[in-house]
């Protein structure tokens, strides 16, 4: 964000790190244009193929920057990794942690990584976390296992079990516990569908 601008200003200038210094409406000499179509360095609408290629390359190069800039533990939160490890995201975290401690009391260790950064996907970090895990369990509040698909697409590794709930109700720790127990006892379906809640 610029506080002042000297000389010619290009809002979308090509730079080494793919980020252009940003003016804002009303800044002296900081005039720029915005458009929803492709634009040149000033922000003017353009269909020039060469500019389009450079702009897209610049835009997409920022995905690498995102992975570098966001600390690992904000991309993925690890609650321990074991032979059986859960991947999940969002509101499922609480009941998963409760189910894990219920199992622990019985001497069963289940790991859990909560994936917070979906795109760009932190492939290298997730791979390194799960390198010794034997069974991956994807727990999600949707029908298709959306995170599982993204996981497979980026890591080229299969999800072993899905625990899914799509009734519009939150997951409970006991139903997660029940499914995890079945998995550990090798009695589970590949796809466990939860239904607690009236």
């Amino acid at each position: 964000m610029l506080d002042k601008v000297d000389g010619e200003y290009k809002r979308f200038a090509f730079t080494d790190d793919g980020i252009s210094p940003r003016s804002r409406l009303g800044l002296d000499n900081g005039i720029f244009w915005n458009t929803g179509d492709e634009s040149d360095e000033f922000g003017h609408i353009t269909e020039d193929p060469q500019i389009r290629i450079k702009m897209m390359d610049k835009r997409m190069s920022r995905l690498d920057l995102v992975i570098k800039r966001i600390p690992d533990d904000e991309q993925v939160v690890s609650f321990g990794v074991h032979d059986y490890t859960i991947i999940s995201w969002g509101s499922t975290k609480g009941p998963i942690l409760d189910a894990i401690s219920m199992l622990k009391k019985e001497g069963i260790n289940v790991g859990f990584i909560q994936i917070k950064l979906i795109h760009p996907f932190p492939s290298d970090y997730v791979k390194s976390l799960l390198k010794n895990t034997k069974i991956i369990i994807d727990i999600e509040a949707n029908h298709s296992g959306q995170l599982g698909k993204i996981f497979k697409q980026n890591i080229s590794r299969e999800i072993d079990y899905f625990i899914l709930k799509y009734t519009g109700r939150g997951m409970t720790s006991t139903e997660i516990y029940d499914s995890l127990k079945k998995i550990v006892e090798n009695k589970a379906n590949k796809r466990e569908v939860l239904s607690h809640g009236a």
Binding site: L25, G26, I31, F32, W33, T35, G43, H44, I45
Partner: peptide, 25 residues
Amino acid sequence: DKATIFSGIGCSGKTSHFINTYGVH
């Protein structure tokens, strides 16, 4: 640098690019 032309989408939407003030299409 103390004026902004905002424009919608359409032939008329190109207007902001033709005026040398801040422009938001």
